[in-house]
């Protein structure tokens, strides 16, 4: 493909601005950057835009960003794959009249445009798509190396005026950083872990195995036993450990798509018909509340 003429990067975090900076250089001639967070710039970026009032929700800047894309005639928009980035990708795509390519595990230059590959149907299938002469791509963390950081000199400010959205309250969250994606061993808990007591047992097992702790989506979102940053699966974290311990996990594809690249899978489940037993290397059928203490005790007595 020929490089796109003008590309707009939309990033919230500093690291994403730098990573998208190097992605932009690969696919386009001229780069502009909208910082949804603190202003920053990257090598290769010609023009930086920032939000006039960062106490206002990013949602209040949709009109301003849509107008910018229309005026400047960008053909390519690369957005950070975070919730605000996804929103702006949708706004950009509506202006450009194109679809958005998201959640790609592979992004490359194709014959006509940018080719992306993503999991779909809950991880059952892989979908390969190609943009046309205009494209909007949501880019996940770590897909491109970070470009050299530059100071954002006199960024042009975008205004939230004319928006029908006002921000009443904004609360920073304590973010639990996890190292799941890079962990050598991972313990994943599913709904077989029903309460804090079983979870404590799973945590003890994880520490005995020197493993990071993750979970399935319902454990995080419905039972709230672990933060959402810890759920593994097609819509969450993809793990690639040497060993994955699946505790009380039934083995729905939405989850296993996120751990299928593990070297070995060890599973504990009460239900002998659980699909996880068809996708593990070693499985033991039984109640994890009874089994885990026995296993830990036996492993401790060498």
């Amino acid at each position: 493909m020929n490089k796109f003429n003008k590309c707009l990067i939309i990033a919230q975090s500093r690291l994403a601005a730098l990573e998208l900076g190097s992605a932009g250089k690969e696919f386009a001639q001229e780069l502009s950057l909208v910082c949804l967070g603190a202003p920053v710039s990257a090598e290769g970026v010609d023009k930086v835009y920032a939000l006039a009032d960062r106490e206002q929700s990013v949602t209040a800047y949709s009109t301003a960003i849509a107008a910018l894309i229309k005026e400047q005639g960008y053909q390519l928009v690369l957005a950070e794959q975070c919730r605000n980035g996804r929103l702006m990708a949708g706004i950009a795509a509506a202006v450009l009249g194109v679809g958005v390519q998201t959640d790609a595990f592979q992004i490359s230059a194709g014959e006509k445009g940018i080719v992306t590959k993503k999991l779909s149907y809950g991880g059952f299938a892989a979908l390969t798509e190609e943009s046309g002469s205009c494209g909007v791509i949501c880019v996940g963390a770590g897909m491109f190396p970070a470009a050299e950081e530059k100071e954002a000199s006199e960024p042009e400010l975008l205004s939230p005026l004319s928006s029908g959205i006002s921000t009443l309250e904004r609360k920073e969250k304590l973010v639990q950083r996890t190292n799941l994606a890079a962990a050598r061993r991972v313990v994943g808990v599913g709904r077989g872990v029903k309460d804090a007591e079983s979870l404590a047992l799973a945590e003890k097992f994880a520490s005995a195995m020197e493993a990071e702790l993750g979970c399935t989506r319902p454990v995080a979102e419905e039972d709230h036993l672990l933060p959402t940053s810890r759920y593994i699966g097609v819509s969450g974290v993809t793990v690639r450990p040497e060993v994955y311990f699946a505790l009380g996990i039934s083995g729905q594809i939405q989850h296993t798509a996120g751990c299928d690249q593990a070297g070995l899978i060890f599973a504990v489940n009460k239900d002998e018909h659980a699909p996880i037993f068809k996708g593990c290397d070693f499985g033991i059928v039984g109640d994890l509340n009874k089994l885990l203490p026995k296993l830990m005790e036996a492993l401790a007595n060498k």
Binding site: K112, A125, A126, T128, E129, E130, T256
Partner: peptide, 12 residues
């Protein structure tokens, strides 16, 4: 608006 090049089952 985005071309679909392929849709295939992922080998487990």
């Amino acid at each position: 608006k985005v071309s679909q090049l392929s849709l295939k089952v992922v080998d487990k």
